[in-house]
Computed example of a mutant assay.
Amino acid sequence: MILVTGAAGFIGSAVVWSLNQRGITDLILADSFGKTDKWKNLRGLKFTEFVDRGDLFDALETAEWAKDIKAVVHMGACADTTQADVDFLMTWNYEYSRILCEWSLANNARFIYASSAAVYGDGALGFSDKDELTPKLRPLNAYGFSKWLFDMWVLEHKLQDKVAGLRFFNVFGPNEYHKARMASVILHAYPQARDTNKVRLFESHRSDFKHGEQRRDFIHIAEVLTGIKFLLDKPTVNGIFNLGTGTPHTYNQLAENVFKALGKRTNIEYFPMPEDLRNRYQYETCADMTKFYAAGLPKFTDRFGEFVQSYVRDYMDKGGKYLADV
């Protein structure tokens, strides 16, 4: 039995889909739907039971299935990087994670959790996932702080040899459609390129980066699933790991691949970044994958262009939104 939290969200629902593809359906899903469309991510998927995230801890104490849980894939969190309610973030990103981790350890269940590249702040200290660097990191926003705080809790309680954390970089792909403004730039660029033959990108407000040359370590959801599957299959591999590709690409390259997939000429318009984002904006991210590769994860090759174009051609341009659509 595997418990997946955030199970209706982007990465969580992809994990459920991936497990189903392997014939694994003995799953407990935890999440809350609110007024979003993320419930659609679960259509066609097979699982044993769904539990509201607010009722999960009670269920873990009373439900018959709780004793059969062998692994917890904890993807549940508030992932809004602009969320200003720090108490809300502390409740759902820190306290919830801490309680679930303690339950997992007490019940001999594998614990895999979602951290974030947001912990690295402006990247001034680099993007190494070495444990000794973590206390020195300075996240730029409250979301990143909440993720950093849980990483610190793991380290301070010397649990890095007992649990596995994944610092996700810039994930994109099917099942992200409910995320609205928090969805990938690729998702937002596609309708612009399709309908207006133009893609709008932020200007750079730093002299060392030209417009559109801000760089991100974009990672496709299929690559993320490879990392999570590796940890599920290798329960002795523990620690806090980066999960990116190790190869950053620019937003200009992103737009170029969207246009290429549509068979159109590249046409990019740059516009000023909102004032409130300028001091919280990461100009470059690039995962140092040394530690995860040393633990045995097969090395990723650079498939950025292929994945972007496939996302456009095989999903969005055919009206598809979900992994199960192809």
Rank of each mutant, 00 (worst) to 15 (best):
T25E: 03
K179L: 02
R278K: 12
Q309W: 05
K179Q: 05
A261Y: 03
H205K: 05
I219H: 06
K321T: 06
M1K: 14
K67C: 08
Y190E: 07
G246R: 05
K299W: 09
L89Q: 04
D55A: 15
A84Q: 15
V308Q: 01
L155D: 09
L231E: 00
N141P: 13
P174M: 07
V154E: 01
W17P: 09
A30M: 02
L3Q: 02
L225Y: 13
R278P: 11
V237K: 02
D80I: 11
V163L: 08
L254M: 12
P139S: 13
G54A: 08
Y120N: 01
A7W: 00
L89A: 14
A79Q: 07
R194A: 06
F168L: 11
E156S: 15
T250G: 04
Q282R: 11
N170P: 03
R303G: 01
W17V: 04
T81I: 15
W153A: 11
Q83N: 10
V72R: 03
L166D: 02
D58Q: 04
V185I: 15
D80H: 08
E49H: 01
A180M: 06
T236Q: 10
A106H: 00
Y281N: 10
T134N: 05
T5Q: 13
I2W: 03
A118Q: 13
A71M: 00
H220M: 07
C286P: 04
H157T: 12
P135S: 05
S104R: 00
M273V: 03
T290D: 12
K40A: 02
F259S: 12
L159I: 10
A287T: 05
A142M: 04
L232C: 12
A84N: 13
L140R: 00
A117L: 06
N170T: 08
T285P: 10
N175E: 10
L232M: 15
A164M: 10
W92P: 00
K260C: 01
G244W: 11
D131P: 15
F145P: 04
D314Q: 00
H74Q: 05
